[in-house]
């Protein structure tokens, strides 16, 4: 009998998938199955957590002139 698992199918590009795998390596309750380079099955309740963490990681890498200005005036 084949197995049916409830989950959420995630479609993304390979870089994002790598990020999610990275998050999962510290928290082991996210990924249910890695399907291929661009698809993942993750736990239904962890979707929001993944999205938030992704946003945070991506924001770290974006240049924000406002922050620069704030830091400059702060100091």
């Amino acid at each position: 009998m084949p197995k049916a698992t409830r989950g959420v199918l995630i479609e993304c590009d390979p870089s994002i998938k790598a990020l999610i795998v990275n998050i999962d390596s510290s928290q082991h309750n996210i990924i249910l199955d890695e399907l291929d380079d661009t698809h993942l099955m993750i736990h239904p309740s962890m979707v929001e957590v993944v999205k938030q963490k992704l946003n945070k990681m991506l924001a770290e890498n974006t240049y924000n002139p406002n922050e620069e200005a704030a830091k400059a005036t702060g100091k």
Binding site: K3, T5, G7, C12, I16, D33, P44, V47
Partner: peptide
């Protein structure tokens, strides 16, 4: 586009076929 880098759909994964 950045906002939706991932597309999430609820579903069932069928695996372990004989």
């Amino acid at each position: 586009l950045e906002m939706d880098r991932i597309r999430a759909t609820d579903g069932y994964l069928f695996s372990e076929f004989k």
